[in-house]
Write a protein that binds this DNA or RNA. Sequence first.
DNA 1: GTCAAAATGAGAATGATTCTCAAAATGATT
DNA 2: AATCATTTTGAGAATCATTCTCATTTTGAC
Lengths: 138, 138
Amino acid sequence: MPSRSKYKTRQKEIVVNYLKSVSGTHITAGDVARHFKEQGIPVGQATVYRQLESLVDQGLVNKYIIDSNSPACFEYTGADSHLQGESCFHCKCEKCGKLIHLHCDQLEEIQAHLDREHQFKLDPFRTVFYGLCEQCSR
Amino acid sequence: MPSRSKYKTRQKEIVVNYLKSVSGTHITAGDVARHFKEQGIPVGQATVYRQLESLVDQGLVNKYIIDSNSPACFEYTGADSHLQGESCFHCKCEKCGKLIHLHCDQLEEIQAHLDREHQFKLDPFRTVFYGLCEQCSR
DNA sequence: GTCAAAATGAGAATGATTCTCAAAATGATT
DNA sequence: AATCATTTTGAGAATCATTCTCATTTTGAC
């Protein structure tokens, strides 16, 4: 059972703030835990994983699973991030790892189509398009 | 360095044939290895992983990474599979975990659109749409 | 302040995947 | 069919991200 965060804790604040402070990059749970350990900030590894999971559940953080043998990446996508507002789609380059943010009306049509024709409620923040970016596909 | 399959071996044949025989389902490397072990078929675990990787490289098999804590799934997509030619999209229900296969012309338009307008070469086999399925969204 | 419920953390457990390396198989060449 | 360099195999160990355990601490409602 995931921690559904009923209490407000110092650790939760620290994790959110750190994620915000590195907004715009993708970072692994290990990176976060290591940072806290090195800086002597009292947030343990298990808590980092738990808080990240909870933040993903809340839609404040996006989780990217790039490859089966590399750790998952996280990115703050909350209200005061530069991703805020419109539904934002993400493209991840399988080769160079670049993460591209797309705002596009036609892509938003996908959402309506999946709902209308396939009765599937797409969660755009959790969905990542994988493929090759312009540079890497040449 | 991945095995780039210069020699033809019995194990390679066995793996390909088994993948074909379960065509249409998703199967993990562990499932495959377990099956061989239980049936006394002489293909070890390491070889299963190596052959699957090689088959993915050759484009005969697709690999799906659904979630960071569940094993990768494989599916035969070679010339004599029922997936031949069609792009197949996958929807994963965040609530019940169900995986849905979608064949849909309009969805295939996404691919063309991403390529045309955003210079992004979508890899449909690696891309999973997250959201809520019909049952779970009610 | 009391107290039940929730969150934390250190370390252990899990589990998928990859690595190691000696032995076996392959296929080209005699 | 014998030789031989190269490749592949497999049993088990190693790796490593992630989750679990559970005793301790923290939280917030009363």
